[in-house]
């Protein structure tokens, strides 16, 4: 019995871990919603995630099997046979330094394009540079949006005809849009889980964030940086409209916003 512990490390725990991982999508514990990203950049992020996942799974299986195997052989070594006296192997050391090194370097370089696309101004899609639709203002504990009046562009300073909304961000679907992210008080983080978008809102900074909703629909927006006791309450929604409806919606919002409540 004492010797059979290797089974625990080779058979039971890693296998269980793999089984749980394999079951994850079926149990809806994986990516939110249907598991597919709702934004274009999210698709790339998912792809990179799966690349890493595959590499990691292979490494996980490899190392666990190797460890289970050496545990098995080491525990079943006859009592009269001495352990293998070895201080290491230079060639092996070289192999397991260089190969993982190459793989890791590849991984690092493979990531850079998506990162540049997401954050580097020069690599933004063209439309994202011009299509600045709203200022998202985080505050304890809600999201306040400021839109320019229909037909106008967003100014850094609030304008008299700007439109405001709380916990609702309306965007056109199918085109990259940029929001200006800022905070009125403490640090917050603009997190769109189904779109795989996240960016901290830092006091004193205005940070542009672009994303493209693939389809019209409603997507959750939450806060991902501790902002006080009500951190968990900062739920909002991003509503992506078909482009034509978006224009109409903005017009109706403008009307509602400047309603004088006069009934003839």
């Amino acid at each position: 019995m004492k010797r059979l512990w290797w089974i625990f490390f080779l058979m039971i725990w890693p296998v269980l871990a793999l089984v749980v991982c394999a079951m994850t999508p079926g149990l809806k514990w994986g990516f939110p919603g249907d598991g597919l990203s709702d934004s274009t950049i999210g698709v790339e992020i998912d792809h990179l995630f799966y690349v890493i996942l595959i590499i990691c799974t292979v490494v996980f299986i490899g190392t666990q099997v190797a460890m289970g195997y050496v545990l098995w052989t080491a525990s079943s070594r006859p009592a009269d046979r001495r352990a293998w006296y070895s201080h290491g192997n230079h060639k092996l050391e070289m192999i397991w330094t260089v190969i993982p090194g190459i793989i890791l370097l590849f991984l690092a370089l493979y990531q850079t394009r998506t990162w540049a696309e997401f954050r580097m101004n020069s690599a933004y899609p063209e439309a994202a540079k011009t299509n600045i639709i709203a200022e998202v203002n985080a505050r304890q504990f809600e999201w306040r949006m400021r839109y320019p009046a229909p037909g106008k562009t967003l100014e850094r300073k609030p304008q008299i005809d700007d439109m405001y909304q709380v916990n609702e961000l309306h965007v056109p679907a199918g085109t990259p849009v940029t929001i200006q992210l800022r905070t009125q008080d403490v640090q917050h983080s603009f997190f769109l889980p189904t779109m795989r978008i996240k960016q901290d809102a830092v006091p004193g900074m205005i940070i542009p964030v672009w994303f493209e909703a693939k389809e019209p629909g409603e997507y959750p927006l939450v806060c991902a940086e501790l902002c006080g006791w009500g951190h968990y309450k900062m739920g909002a929604i991003v509503i992506a409209h078909p482009p034509a409806e978006y224009e109409a919606y903005m017009k109706s919002l403008h009307e509602e916003q400047f309603e004088d409540g006069y009934i003839e």
Binding site: Q140, E142, V166, N167, E168, G230, M234, G235, A236, I237
Partner: peptide, 11 residues
């Protein structure tokens, strides 16, 4: 209520 801790419960 903007400017206070009363958040929006729109969702």
């Amino acid at each position: 209520i903007p400017g206070t801790y009363m958040p929006s419960f729109k969702l």
